[in-house]
Design a protein around this nucleic acid. Structure first.
Lengths: 241, 241
DNA sequence: GCTGACCGGTTATCATACAAGTGGGAAAGC
DNA sequence: GCTTTCCCACTTGTATGATAACCGGTCAGC
């Protein structure tokens, strides 16, 4: 047995039905406001039980692609996909990774600017603690991703805008896996870049601490843009603040 | 019959079950990786049929909150909610509206900066056309929301980053309803503010046309921040670029 | 012309049954 | 005692059929 690989598990029927219906709606085959065929009819067309169709519809409902009313039928939502922002599970393509990271740079930069205005003593103390912790690690020639993430998360919270916080957490969760992979490819970080990261972090914090919003935003963008380059994603190429 | 109001339609059972399960997972009652009770057990606990539970689970699956495997059970995802960013259907609260709009300011500002670098001739022509169209409307003392939206959408596309584009479309869809309501409250726009809007748009376009990214970003932020104030949402309070 | 009961079709829910996958433990073999 | 095999309980996936609630239109009755 030489070329064994993971077997392809049979996909669930409801997944497949949901996929096809979603595609049909997104492609405009069913226009907004149009009525979908009845569950019975769809069940016959897909050659599955009505339950499978119902489960698929249930998912479309939670994605706000359709709207159902008892006795009437299922209708394509006026704005299909509103209220929902999705990212593909694992952005393997470097271009996508670059684009998502770019979005993060913009948002987290603005978050740092807000944090400079709004951060309270507790949050400043937290950032300071993270910096200290990372500094210790730098001395030991390794990086402390844990403290790094905490530092960024604290800034997001200090923006006092829960939507910034939530969106950055969301982007982070989607980037972390890909970043870890990219990092393992480019071998371990050089001690030099560890030092650079530390300096960048300190620049961000210094600006926040002295309540200098533009400087904080610029420092954060500069830091993240440098991080992009370290990961081999190319520069930010946005506005140089 | 004085105080008649729209009746509260009985919520679907599967909605309610999905809501409670989602809350339980988000609150950490079921930790990541933990196994949920079986469908049978949940059905008994909620006093509904197994079908209802299955439909609810189906939605949690599509939200990537849980993962099910035949014969084993349902498990909370390692990172619940990763890959999905949701906004509440109708952010009625002014604070939320302000926060979401603030996020838009940050992202669309950056998009304008990117557009200044990357916009091609076709996109510049499109922006110019929108400006002309709005100018005509200004002369007639009314605003052209259609052309306004198209102008902003073109800038988002010109950023050449599909994630900026998609995210701004997403935010726009969620804000439009609330904005329309806020606008009807503050009566019709004054002719003065219509003129101001036109001037702001032209400033944004001028910066993009001369490939001045920082100026484009600043102009867009200034424009959107002014829009926030016109809607009674307060200023942006971010970094002044 | 208007009202109101009725009807066919649709979704929502329930109950039950069977198929298929999983893991553990009983039972058999050594 | 140890290993291997097989069986069984449990779980999710799918199918079927039935009932309730709901909706829009129809049509008899007035």
């Amino acid at each position: 047995m030489t070329s064994i690989t993971s077997v392809t598990r049979a996909p669930r029927l409801s997944d497949e039905v949901a996929r096809q219906l979603t595609a049909a709606i997104r492609s405009g085959e069913f226009a907004p406001g149009a009525r979908l065929p009845s569950e019975k009819e769809l069940a016959e067309r897909f050659e599955v039980s009505r339950m499978v169709v119902r489960e698929a519809m249930s998912r479309l409902k939670s994605d706000e692609l359709i709207d159902t009313r008892q006795g009437l039928g299922a209708f394509v939502a006026a704005e299909p996909g509103r209220g929902l922002f999705r990212l593909e599970p694992d952005p393997a393509i470097a271009k996508d990774l670059h684009d998502i990271f770019q979005l993060r740079v913009a948002v987290e930069g603005a978050a740092a600017g807000l944090a400079a205005v709004r951060a309270n003593r507790r949050e400043l103390a937290m950032m300071r603690a993270c910096l200290r912790e990372m500094k210790v690690s730098v001395a030991g020639r390794e990086d402390d991703i844990e403290a790094d993430n905490r530092f960024h998360a604290t800034i997001a919270q200090a923006s006092r805008n829960p939507y910034f916080d939530r969106f950055l957490t969301f982007l982070g969760a989607n980037l972390h896996g890909a970043i870890a992979k990219a990092r393992s490819n480019t071998a371990a970080r050089h001690p030099r870049s560890v030092l650079a990261v530390q300096a960048e972090h300190e620049a961000v914090f210094a600006a926040i601490e002295r309540r200098d919003a533009p400087a904080a935003e610029a420092a954060m963008r500069s830091h993240l843009s440098a991080a992009m380059e370290r990961l081999g994603l190319g520069p930010f190429t946005g506005a140089r603040l």
